[in-house]
Design a protein around this nucleic acid. Structure first.
Length: 262
DNA sequence: CGCGTTTGACCCGCGC
DNA sequence: GCGCGGGTCAAACGCG
C-alpha cells in the first residue's frame, strides 16, 4: 500500500487566485449542502430506528408477560421485567449483540473502556460469563456482564449496571475512526485466543444487529444527542488524523497569510 | 516494568 | 447451619 500524500500547490498565478477562491467557495457550499442532506438522512434513519426499537420493546414486554407465566426463575424474571427495574437504582440495562459464528470473543466494543475483573461459568449456561468494570474513570460505578445466549451462541447478552459518571466515549471514537487500522482488541494475555471484539453498531457493513431490549427513556433521549456528538467527533478525527492533511493545511494557510497584501 | 487478563479462592446472599 | 451459586478479589502471568 503506497502512502498517500496530501499536497496543496499554492504557487498560483495571482490572476487565477480570485477564480480559485470562487471555485473553492462553490465547492464549500456544495459540501455544506451535501452535509446537510446527509444529516437529514441520518436523522431520518435514527427516527426509524427509534420507532422500530419501541415496537420491539413492546413485543418483548408482551412476550415476557407470557413467559413469566411459564417459568418463574428469579434471574430471568429480573431480566425480562426490566421496565420495573428502571425505577430502582442502580440502573440496569440489557443489550443483545449478534456476532459472527466464528467469533468466540466476549468483548463488546460499546464505546467505553472496560477492565475485566472476573469470569465465571454459571449453572444455567455452559458458556462463561465475563465481568467488566468501566476503567475510563476510576470512580465510575458501571459494571457489565457479558455472556453468550443459551438459545443462540452467536448472540452476546450484555448486562449493564449503573450509570457512567463521565461523558467521554473515547474508545468508541477511536475505534470507529480507525476501524481499518490496527486491531483494537484488548490485550490478550494468556493462552486463550480471543477473536476481534464485537462492535454493537449499525454503522458496520456486516449484518451486526444491536437490540437494546430494555433501554430506559433517559438513555433513549440521550442517544440522539450522543449520535450527533459522535458525528462531529468523527468528522474532526477524520480530518485531523491525516498528518499530511494537517501539514498541508497549515502550510497553505500560512502561505496565504504571507502572500496577502496588508 | 507497567498494565490488563486469567483463574482459583473467597465472600455473601438465599433457600432448605 | 449447611450447601449452592453468583459475584468479587487478588496473585500469577505474559505481552509490549
Amino acid at each position: 500500500m503506497e502512502p498517500t500524500t496530501t499536497c496543496f500547490d499554492l504557487n498560483l498565478d495571482p490572476s487565477m487566485v480570485l477564480m480559485e477562491d470562487q471555485v473553492l467557495v462553490q465547492e464549500l457550499h456544495r459540501l455544506s449542502c451535501e452535509n446537510k442532506r446527509l444529516t437529514n438522512l441520518l436523522t431520518h434513519l435514527c427516527d426509524n430506528y427509534m420507532a422500530l426499537q419501541k415496537q420491539f420493546n413492546q413485543l418483548i414486554d408482551t412476550n415476557s408477560d407470557q413467559d413469566s407465566r411459564k417459568r418463574k426463575l428469579p434471574h430471568e424474571c429480573s431480566a425480562n421485567k426490566f421496565n420495573d427495574l428502571n425505577s430502582s437504582s442502580p440502573k440496569v440495562s440489557k443489550v443483545l449483540v449478534k456476532t459472527q459464528a466464528s467469533n468466540n470473543s466476549l468483548y463488546v466494543m460499546d464505546g467505553y473502556q472496560w477492565r475485566k475483573y472476573g469470569q465465571k461459568v454459571t449453572r444455567d449456561n455452559p458458556s462463561p460469563r465475563a465481568y467488566f468494570r468501566c476503567s475510563f474513570a476510576p470512580s465510575c460505578p458501571v459494571k457489565k456482564k457479558v455472556q453468550r445466549s443459551l438459545e443462540d451462541p452467536t448472540i452476546l447478552v450484555t448486562t449493564y449496571e449503573g450509570e457512567h459518571n463521565h461523558g467521554h466515549r473515547q474508545a468508541e471514537i477511536s475505534l470507529l475512526s480507525s476501524q481499518s487500522e490496527t486491531d483494537q482488541s484488548p490485550k490478550t494475555k494468556g493462552s486463550s485466543p480471543v477473536s476481534s471484539p464485537t462492535t454493537p453498531t449499525i454503522l458496520s457493513g456486516c449484518p451486526t444487529v444491536t437490540l437494546d431490549l430494555v433501554k430506559s427513556g433517559l438513555v433513549e433521549s440521550a442517544q440522539k444527542s450522543s449520535i450527533q456528538q459522535f458525528l462531529v467527533q468523527q468528522m474532526t478525527n477524520s480530518l485531523t488524523r491525516d498528518p499530511n492533511f494537517t501539514t498541508a493545511l497549515a502550510t497553505a494557510i500560512s502561505g496565504k497569510i504571507l502572500e496577502a497584501k496588508w
